[in-house]
Amino acid sequence: MVKRSTALGVIGSTFVWAFLLALAVVVIYPLLWMTLNGFKTNAELFGNPFALPVELRWENYANAWNRGVGNYLMVSVLVTVTSTIATVFIGAWAAYGLTRIKIPFSRTFLIVILAGLMLAPTVALIPLVRMFQALGLYNTFWALLILYTAFRIPFTVFLIRAYMMDLPVQIDEAAAVDGASRARAFWQIILPMCKPIIVSTVILNILFTWNEYLFAMVFTSGGDFQTLPVGLTNLMAKHGTDYPVVFAGMVMAALPMVVLFIAGQRYFIRGLADGIGK
């Protein structure tokens, strides 16, 4: 702890505070503007951009909901929940195998899985379009579920594996003494012990899936089945002259993630710390 009460220190800390607060304004003001615009009329929007809405027009939100945002929200929730569950289970299962069990070529498998971290999804885009069409999965829920799971496995394995490596081996030995099978030891002992890192990966996965755009745009056909990011651009195209409704839709898409992050920030930061620290 530095205790310097020189004039320089005071000026310095004033400057730091001013800078941090100014930056906070730069971050918050656009978001506030977005929220307020969701309450305006078109005429107000085209008038003075700094003005507050004359009244809170909740009907813009209702309109956005009825014009598809409700639907997109449901699809996003469905895809996010299922792919997060699938990713975390497959990832944890593999991480357990890689850390606790003697597997032939385990090093090769490890490299195969972790090397996936380095691949850009765009590179696989064109072949994937063909593949999913051939499999009859194009424009289905399964396409997004499979893609989100496959491309998220490397990072998930990476995080969970790092955590599992630090769990003492004695736990497994104790389980083995009790006669628990490997699978039971995984489900009943190791998995619960990994709860903190699981929560972190779940939050990271939700953030990713909820916001993903490339696959969602290419692999859905634009009918009722669309996730929020793609649905929002559609809302913009279809109701281009009704901007306040578009803003309302944007707020509805952003809000769940902001709330989730603020509520789960402790786990989130911990997940990041574990990711870096290893």
Binding site: V129, R130, F132, Q133, Y138, N139, V218, S221, G222
Partner: peptide
């Protein structure tokens, strides 16, 4: 874009 995507995916 949508028509092209659907065409390319034979969908």
């Amino acid at each position: 874009d949508k028509t092209k995507t659907l065409t390319a995916s034979q969908a």
